[in-house]
């Protein structure tokens, strides 16, 4: 049985339907990226999953406990990190974690060990006596994550965890989350920054206007969306040499004459070629189309030194299934 089962979740605020018939499941040890534009219903869904709000209809089961009917039983299994760090002024890192450990009911030696263990895991031990206000954003994010882990939850709900972090802090956060998933925790990360999710998540759920448009692996979502809205792109580099512009112009003209090529643009020392393919076109057909172009270029005696196709990613999946509407 899945650790988390969300069935037909709906949340109305007056006449506004913020979440509409959202259903998905999540296994222990997996990371789900919850993606959607601002106002799509991500935070509302997360708040319901965190037992901070109740759905108008629908059911959520966490390890068999209903979040709606028995939130008290499910709550200890949930670690929720809102989009704000939620740290206090004039409190050291140790005091902050110690306070929340007390609040979770941990006592004496058990509490100290737990706080030490969490600080060690999040790399906060050297900063234990520093005031939280003196920390960088990345470190404060770690403190917040540490707080989320204090009671050893099985499901982590992270709302925009990497927002405002520098690249290093993002990479470190990614490693921490991967380690947590390896320990068997299920993680849901809500974000609208797709690049950060693409590298962390095993599966994605794309939500728009409160409706879940697609769930699954990125490739599966692209398949679900028909795969035609985003044209595959090819990058061609030429060893143009002294003839320079003339070679680039010839290549551009030649490419535009080829079937399925809809756009060619020179970007620095490369040509960006966009193809239009029929709905449902698979990777094999894309490869075939690329081969035709490469053959044409080489046959025309153009000095091709690099020819590559960009792999479709989470951004493409997102663009495939969403329409840019807000609830």
């Amino acid at each position: 049985m899945s650790l988390l089962q969300v069935k037909g979740l709906r949340r109305d605020f007056g006449s506004l339907r913020a979440v509409d018939d959202v259903s998905f499941t999540l296994e222990a040890g997996s990371i789900l990226g919850f993606i959607g534009p601002n106002g799509a219903g991500k935070s509302t869904t997360l708040r319901i999953l965190a037992t901070l709000d109740v759905p108008t209809t629908g059911e959520v089961l966490l390890d068999g406990h209903s979040l709606v009917d028995a939130p008290d039983k499910a709550r200890p299994l949930i670690g929720y990190m809102p989009d704000r760090y939620g740290t206090y002024d004039d409190v050291t890192v140790f005091e902050f974690l110690d306070f929340f450990a007390r609040a979770y009911g941990l006592k004496g030696t058990q509490r100290r060990e737990r706080v030490e263990s969490v600080m060690e895991f999040t790399g906060l031990t050297p900063l234990a006596q520093k005031l939280t206000t003196a920390l960088s954003k990345g470190m404060r994010q770690r403190v917040a994550l540490g707080r989320t882990l204090l009671h050893d939850p099985r499901l982590l709900l992270l709302d925009e965890p990497a927002d405002g972090l520098d690249p290093r802090a993002r990479i470190e956060l990614r490693e921490l989350l991967r380690a947590l998933a390896d320990q068997g925790k299920a993680v849901i990360i809500s974000s609208h920054i797709l690049t950060e999710l693409a590298e962390i998540c095993d599966t994605c759920a794309i939500i728009e206007q409160g409706r879940l448009l697609a769930t699954g692996k990125v490739e599966d979502i692209l398949q679900q969306g028909g795969g035609s809205a985003v044209a595959p792109e090819l990058t061609v580099r030429l060893a143009a040499g002294a003839e320079g512009d003339a070679v680039w112009a010839r290549a551009e003209r030649l490419l535009l004459e080829q079937p399925r090529v809809v756009h060619v643009a020179r970007e620095g020392e490369a040509l960006r070629v966009r193809l239009e393919l029929e709905p449902g076109t698979g990777p094999a057909q894309v490869d075939a189309a690329a081969a035709v172009l490469l053959t044409a270029l080489v046959s025309a005696g153009l000095p091709v030194c690099s020819f590559s196709a960009r792999e479709r990613n989470l951004e493409d999946a997102f663009m495939t299934v969403t329409k840019g509407r807000v609830a």
Partner: peptide, 8 residues
């Protein structure tokens, strides 16, 4: 990397 799991 040491983890906080089950250390409580």
């Amino acid at each position: 990397m040491s983890t906080p799991v089950d250390t409580a």
